[in-house]
């Protein structure tokens, strides 16, 4: 199965993007992601269509970890592995948006450049654009677009995360957490958050001192889990392609293990997606009121808590008015 590139000029409209997607034309997908990212007209129609056609047969993989641990380099090696068996791969790579300028440097492609000329691999760099939790809002929706397009394997690479950005685990089948020697002591391991979401741990840059110690420390905190649920801990040197086969084997095992809880996980994911959509919508609705309310708080005519309450009431009132209009 190849990803087709067809002749086409001009920027496709929403309906064109949908039919291009159906024809498995990469320009349809690429356009669709932009529409979702930019909140362009027709976004909802596009996503509804994608949701209905999204194939749950696509295997989704997540890679997360601190900046510079080698996520992109490992993903590059993983793509290579799947390409050897002819599977098509879609990759979403998220990098941070500057909270100061709103701009971004999207550099994950650099580590995956060997796949640039390969029509069986689609890589898209996404900026986080104000997202919390390590995934951009667009990433969550783009996942449906990728599933509707029907890649064999979909890989989500988060931006470099700290302790609490754990979104990715809710959206993919298997989550890999990357660590590097020097990560921290056993107390860091015991903390909540990112250490809890791993289906498997990869200790990358294992040619550096301390790799064995780190492996033992990670295993140590996992001994409390039942043996069958214990995430494997593996050593890799991703840029030298070392340890990748073991990682792929472990991923396959974890996938089988987790397939049993598939339905429950699917339900949780849907709940999370609805919650996330609602919160994004509300954040957008609140935005126009923020300046005014900040002014009121600063002149001491209101506390921040009261301001928040007032905004919520205004949004509710706006909704009621909309409903009335619609019912007429």
């Amino acid at each position: 199965m190849e990803v087709f590139l067809h002749n086409l000029t001009g920027i496709p409209r929403v309906d064109e993007a949908i039919s291009l997607m159906k024809a498995r034309n990469i320009r349809g997908l690429t356009r669709a992601i932009s529409i979702v990212e930019n909140y362009e007209e027709g976004r909802d129609a596009l996503l509804n269509d994608a949701f209905q056609r999204a194939s749950e047969a696509c295997f989704t993989l997540g890679f997360t970890g601190a900046p510079g641990v080698g996520k992109s380099t490992l993903v590059n090696a993983v793509i290579r592995h799947y390409r050897r068996s002819g599977k098509t791969v879609g990759v979403m790579a998220v990098d941070p948006t500057s909270p100061f300028s709103g701009g971004a440097v999207l550099g994950d492609r650099i580590r995956m450049q060997e796949h640039n000329p390969d029509n069986g691999v689609y890589i898209r760099s996404l900026a986080s654009r104000k997202a919390l939790g390590g995934l951009s809002e667009a990433t969550k929706y783009a996942l449906y677009l990728y599933k509707a397009f029907g890649f064999d394997v979909i890989i989500v690479e988060t931006l470099g995360v700290g302790q609490d950005e754990i979104d990715v685990a809710r959206y993919v089948d298997v989550t890999t957490v990357l660590l590097v020697p020097g990560y921290g002591d056993t107390i860091q391991m015991a903390k909540a958050g990112i250490m809890e979401i791993a289906d498997l741990f990869v200790i990358n840059k294992s040619d550096r001192p301390g790799a064995d110690l780190l492996k033992k420390q990670v295993q140590n905190i996992l001994y409390m889990k039942a043996e069958k649920e214990r995430p494997p801990v593996l050593n890799t040197i991703a840029d030298q392609n070392e340890g990748i086969d073991d990682v792929m084997e472990a991923i396959a095992e974890v996938r089988q293990r987790k397939a049993l809880q598939g339905q429950e996980r699917h339900r949780k994911r849907i709940v999370e997606e609805i919650r996330s959509s609602v919160l994004t919508r509300l954040a957008g609705d609140a935005e126009p009121h923020l300046d005014e309310m900040a002014g009121k708080v600063l002149t001491l005519s209101m506390t921040p808590i009261e301001a928040a309450e007032l905004i919520i009431r205004r949004i509710q009132k706006g909704c009621l008015e909309d409903d009335e209009k619609n019912s007429i």
């Binding site: 948006t97 500057s98 300028s101 701009g103 440097v105 999207l106 450049q113 900026a127």
Partner: peptide, 8 residues
């Protein structure tokens, strides 16, 4: 404020 992607 732009999104810059580098090929390497």
């Amino acid at each position: 404020g732009m999104e810059a992607i580098y090929t390497g």
